[in-house]
Amino acid sequence: MTLDFSTLLPYTDVILEGLVTTLWLTVVTTAAGIALAILVAYVRDGSPTGTRAVISRLLGGYVEIVRNTPFIVQLFFLYFGLPALGVPISATAAALLAMILNLGAYTAEILRAGIDSTLKGQHEAARALGLSRRQSFRHVVLVPAFSRVYPSLISQCIIVMLGSAVVSQISVFDLTYAANFIQSRNFRGFEVYLVVTLIYLLLAVGLRLAFEFVGRRLFAFRQGGSS
């Protein structure tokens, strides 16, 4: 058994290209996925009636389907299934859509746990004080819920970043695709995968630090306060 990492050197730019793709996919997914989750939480908040109740139930179905099926199947369904229905979609678009829908569902559920633990009286008090539903949702429900579930949110975004390795299977040129590409050229599978795994580990640590930094800024007013 001999390990030879020098055979990787000519492929530095390939790894970099994959890294850039993985990074931008993660950043866009994080922003869009959280926005989607907020929207879902807003519609499902309280006890919806009428049309909102129907949409709310449908959204509940979406959340359960995503949470109880593997990401790779969701990805294949979108990438192979949509064109068959006459909706052409590129590999990158399918990957991004699958990632956003995935993070959106998990984050919606995380947010809901945070919202459920907000005292009901607070919500009612805000309405009684004359805040609109949107205002009270934003200031009284959402922001405190966010700061409460922020640690779970960080973990979920990291899980989605790591899960994005799967998009290589529909030939999106991400970090894992780069690894497979190099492996098929130099036949040094173990070395390539070891290095790329290490890069993912560093990405996960980096992402956590970045999130914690942003969190300290975002929820600074709550530090040392109650709850």
């Binding site: 058994m1 390990l3 990291i158 790591l162 899960g163 994005s164 390795a165 799967v166 290589s168 894992t176 690894a179 492996q183 599978g189 173990f190 995968y193 070891l194 790329v196 795994t197 993912y200 580990l201 996960a204 640590v205």
Partner: peptide
């Protein structure tokens, strides 16, 4: 390490790592 790396990579490593070990 296991929580901070993709499961897909862990599978690849198990598959190719064993080959390296003979």
């Amino acid at each position: 390490v296991f929580q901070g790396t993709p499961l897909l990579m862990q599978l690849f490593l198990a598959y190719f790592g064993a080959a390296v070990l003979g």
